[in-house]
Design a protein around this nucleic acid. Structure first.
Lengths: 347, 347
DNA sequence: AGGCACGGAGGGAGCGCTCTCCGGCATGCC
DNA sequence: GGCATGCCGGAGAGCGCTCCCTCCGTGCCT
């Protein structure tokens, strides 16, 4: 019977057990398990056999207690609204891509993200507490609006954190971001080259740097093309918000022939409204989105859009955080990604 | 200066520190912090003040070591394919809704899910290891295909786990599921009542119980309406897969007047193909989806669909797991939810 | 030949917390 | 007034692991 060696449900095997079975000390087993320092190959083999026989798995709490590492990072989605909003939030393909990228970045070191929502003071306190008590070694933060106090709280507490998107106010935190300004310029140039003369914009939330930059970049580029001002309506990065904004713009500017939407979800709403009003896309009105999310190819016609390499950015954000956790002393470094125009059918 | 009381970056305050400041023993501080047993109100107040003064936060590793609880659950998405597949996966609004529901269910006890992907043997082993070493107390599992070996592994290891969706083979694990059979019947009844006579089906993956049940339920209900057989084409629950299936069906049965798609994403693909072929929806062809995901309202025309209360189901799944963790001895209990038909514009 | 350096294994001290046990004090009952 | 009964606080033993320190043995240099 190997029963005595098997970890019983009541008491899983410990280092001590393995040591006894292998006839060596705890220290030696630990060294073999962690692959540190030189251990005699023969003993290594003995220990490995003992580990297999006992079904030993290191206890993470005990390890974390002494290493002061949880080997876990928090992935925080900050600034969501109500419960209804949460649904919206995770339904947004953007977050799916962020998650995907983070997972890729965390895979090599064998880590996994803890998903947290921070949408009010209580949950923000919870997030800070979670990190302070060492449940996670650092935080990846995706904010949905500019007024989010969490980045400042994180910085103040001196916790390792990396943001997706430049913070609204300057903070001693690393971040990854897209050159949103340049992306908007690409859209403007394309629309101008197409000969659109009456272009309108559906902007993102005014308090989000990404929204501001896209708006500003688009304005400036249009000005350079001799169109100093184009009508704008504020959206909120949702399909519904985009549709509402487009409805307003269409009422006020029925002769428009081009639309720049600050993200693909809003562009989808724009397309729906244009269709309802009998405008053909791209024949009557050219539409450009932003992100190159799954919504872009799901839309009809397929969206011409500014590609944001979200997965790659999220993976890089993760790498920055891991680096920061490994080397706490260093200054925060940030990374800016370049956008690309993806021409499809809508413009 | 309160400096001596503040937790320095170098060494956060421990129970011992608080005890010293408050002039009581570690035990008493622990009791106050955890709110167990009676402690003299005056002393309680003193301790609370000391906690605030020191900025004490309990160390989770130390606590977990002795309580043998991580106060964390794993949310495992199992059966994803390649990295490209991951993107697809989290982009699917279905997962967003699951995440949302899980988060709601975990909020009351102040817990958070660790997101894990299990798409190959290595990652499955990683998941099992993660749970065995006590990094998480249990697992919530969403499988994307029926052949997934993870549920069996979880059951075999005796780890607390609850599945979203009935497992392909009977297993001693709890699960939540939708009465998919009934849902499909709702769709069939509606199509029949509408007078559709040449109805086709875009099915889900054949190895997923949800796909099988919807297919079987639809078939049976149609038979009851005197239509013993309707053409079927297999999709894979993606937009692209739905479009491909629809293209095939349309080529073989150009006179079709109704489509049942086993999920909304595929229904979106169906709509796109029908549009390309100049079929009007619902005038020429009625289309019914399944899930009532965000894709249903984003589609044009808006999808008539069978509602699956995913958030609610996910929240319930979470409750089942927490219960199972709290009371390890009990038998697994499962919950079945009832679907509802949401009539919109497409049928 | 003696000493020194170094590789490799064991011993033991914690990491910060919970929880059981125990002691002391106030109270209630006969 | 004496004894049983709570009730509340303290002491201390770990939880399972890492890691520093010590110690031993071998090989090499002088």
């Amino acid at each position: 019977m190997t029963d005595a060696l098997q970890p019983t449900a009541a008491r899983p095997a410990t280092l001590e057990d393995v040591a006894r079975v292998a006839g060596v000390s705890r220290s030696t087993v630990s060294r073999v398990v962690n692959g540190v320092r030189n251990v005699d190959p023969a003993i290594q083999e003995t220990v490995r056999r003992a580990v297999a026989a006992t079904g030993y798995v290191p206890n993470s709490a005990a390890r974390a207690l002494v290493t002061r590492r949880a080997d876990t990072v928090a992935l925080i989605v900050s600034g969501a609204g109500e419960t209804g909003g949460d649904g919206m939030l995770f339904t947004d393909p953007f977050f799916g891509r962020v998650v995907s990228g983070v997972l890729c970045g965390l895979r090599p070191p064998g880590m996994h993200p803890v998903l947290m929502l921070a949408d009010d003071d209580a949950s923000r306190a919870q997030v800070i507490g979670y990190l302070r008590r060492g449940s996670a070694d650092g935080a990846l933060l995706v904010s949905t609006h500019g007024g989010d106090p969490l980045p400042a709280l994180l910085a103040e507490a001196g916790l390792p954190a990396v943001l997706f998107g430049r913070p609204a106010t300057s903070l001693p935190l690393s971040y990854v971001d897209l050159a949103n300004h340049d992306g908007a310029r690409l859209a403007a140039d394309h629309l101008a080259a197409r000969g659109c003369r009456r272009v309108v914009t559906v902007t993102g939330p005014a308090d989000l740097p990404a929204g501001q930059d896209r708006q500003a970049g688009f304005r400036e580029a249009m000005a350079r093309h001799g169109r100093p001002w184009s009508p704008e309506a504020a959206g909120d990065f949702t399909l519904r918000g985009g549709a509402a904004a487009m409805t307003r713009l269409l009422a006020e500017h029925p002769d428009l022939d081009g639309v720049f939407a600050a993200n693909d979800l809003m562009a989808q709403g724009v397309l729906a409204v244009l269709r309802e009003h009998g405008r053909r896309v791209p024949e009557d009105v050219a539409v450009i989105g932003f992100d190159d999310s799954s919504a872009a190819t799901a839309a009809h016609p397929r969206l011409t859009t500014v590609r944001q390499p979200v997965e790659e950015m999220a993976a890089r954000m993760t790498a920055l955080l891991l680096d920061r956790i490994a080397h706490p002393g260093e200054r925060p470094a940030s990374v800016l990604f370049e956008p690309h125009l993806i021409v499809r059918d809508s413009a």
